[in-house]
Design a protein around this nucleic acid. Sequence first.
DNA 1: CGAATTTGACCAGCGC
DNA 2: GCGCTGGTCAAATTCG
Length: 290
Amino acid sequence: MENNKMMGVKKEDYAANIGSSSLPSCNNYPFFDFSEDKGSLGFMELLGVQDYNHLLDFPLSSHVSVPQTSAVKEPPETKKECSEVTNNQQPTTPNSSSISSASSEVLYDEQNKTVDLAPEHQKTKEQLKAKKTNQKRQREPRFAFMTKSEVDHLEDGYRWRKYGQKAVKNSPFPRSYYRCTSVSCNVKKRVERSFSDPSIVVTTYEGQHTHPSPVMGRSNNFGTVMSGSAGNYMSQYYHQQQVHVNALSSLGFLSSSSSSRNATFSQETALLSDYGLLQDVVPSHMLKED
DNA sequence: CGAATTTGACCAGCGC
DNA sequence: GCGCTGGTCAAATTCG
């Protein structure tokens, strides 16, 4: 089993963070906040990332919260500060989406420099334990998204099978556990609603898809839609991978095949295609690249 | 009838 | 060591 997902994170803190709409940035959760996502789709494409760590290997703009890490277990007060820092760095502009992320393996300092936090002697407690126990448990990189949506389970281009649901401490909303239905694909995700803002859905992805998105295939039609904005953003880091395509499909740009997609699809598409909005998501300097 | 969901039980890790 | 909690399992149930 992988029961140590919350290790290194004070459970209460995590719940509190979710509940207060704070970003659990001190966890292993790179946390993407698409709180202004009015429909069912956010940047869920990221779940298609083949190597999440690559996602984190980019300088973050002012719209991207400084990610924190829990690769090294931190004292509670530090964790609290992490959360606050993240919140402080969230754009206050109501209409702008924001992204915050963190990695269990990578840390960005305030100068957007990447620091490898995973030298052998700095492995987390559970990692060391895992080693002692024949590596029974391996932590997968995880990404959490905050998405403003009325539906809990957001369509993201992949097929998921629900395998569990648990009540969340300090929250009236249960947390649902999903697993990718593809054989040999061990990606999981958790979905829960924010305690303080029920309109916000917190989705946490864990693992890497070992297969293309079931709905990909129309991806080329949307390359131009995303180009110069999120398209660059994604392709820059997932180039040579199908991730980019998956990302687009997951955004809803590609997957009209999904009958479950709700009526806000077109609205969402227009919203995310808007250059101005994407500028809030994508660092401006990245828009010039490619 | 197969796939997906529900839900109670169980297990493991952490804090006290 | 014990209790709490998150995460997973798996049988039962529901759905398409």
